[in-house]
């Protein structure tokens, strides 16, 4: 996803200025996606250029819209154009595609550990599990401090990461059990053709 889609979603609620958009974006993403002021205004500028948002002034004057940055009116409020509204709606109605899986450093490391002779896979898995549990505890502590009713966005995003890391521990357990059930001599090594 992009900041751009986030801004369109927020503007479909009500018109906002650049400062409000940035604040609202950070709040609604649970503090997980901090923006700098430059990013917010670049995004707004491009939305403006593409005719997805406009200001009250744009409606009053004809011709090319001035650059948001050039105009230097930070308090100016933006609202969606018809095309901006359509783009916002189509985002909600389109599922997020998983796409091609990214290379997973951990999976590759374990895969190599299983095939390189002389590596104590169980020890590698144990070390990793300790680290994974530490990360899970850190997220859980952060979650304990969140009032899920007052800050639903943050609770939700913390949960997303908690569930993802839990899945990693289950996978590590599975690797450990699989490796324990397979003697080293039967493990695939290199291609000996």
């Amino acid at each position: 996803m992009s900041v751009r889609q986030g801004f369109l979603a927020l503007l479909s609620e009500q018109p906002m200025n650049g400062y409000q958009l940035r604040q609202e974006f950070e709040r609604r993403t649970g503090g997980s996606w901090p923006l700098n002021i430059g990013q917010s205004y670049t995004t707004l500028n491009r939305l403006h250029r593409d005719g997805l948002v406009e200001t009250v002034d744009d409606q009053a004057t004809d011709g090319d819209p001035p650059s948001v940055l050039a105009s230097h009116r930070p308090a100016e409020r933006f609202h969606l154009t018809e095309s901006g509204r359509e783009t916002a709606v189509s985002w909600w109605t389109t599922p997020v595609h998983r796409g091609k899986a990214e290379r997973d450093e951990l999976a590759i490391k374990i895969a190599l550990a299983v095939t390189v002779p002389g590596i104590d896979v169980a020890a590698v898995v144990r070390e990793q599990r300790s680290e994974t549990m530490r990360a899970l505890r850190a997220l859980t502590r952060a979650k304990r401090d969140v009032d899920p009713l007052a800050d639903r966005a943050r609770a939700l995003i913390l949960d997303a990461q908690i569930f993802a890391i839990e899945a990693e521990t289950r996978w590590l357990d599975h690797v450990e059990a699989t490796v324990a059930a397979t003697p080293q001599s039967e493990r695939p090594k290199r291609n000996t053709r």
Binding site: G30, S32, R154, I157, Q161
Partner: peptide, 16 residues
């Protein structure tokens, strides 16, 4: 077979 502890950071969502 092992013990793990710790895991306290200022904000785990702060630097993704």
């Amino acid at each position: 077979t092992g013990t793990d502890a710790g895991g306290r950071v200022a904000d785990p969502l702060g630097e993704p």
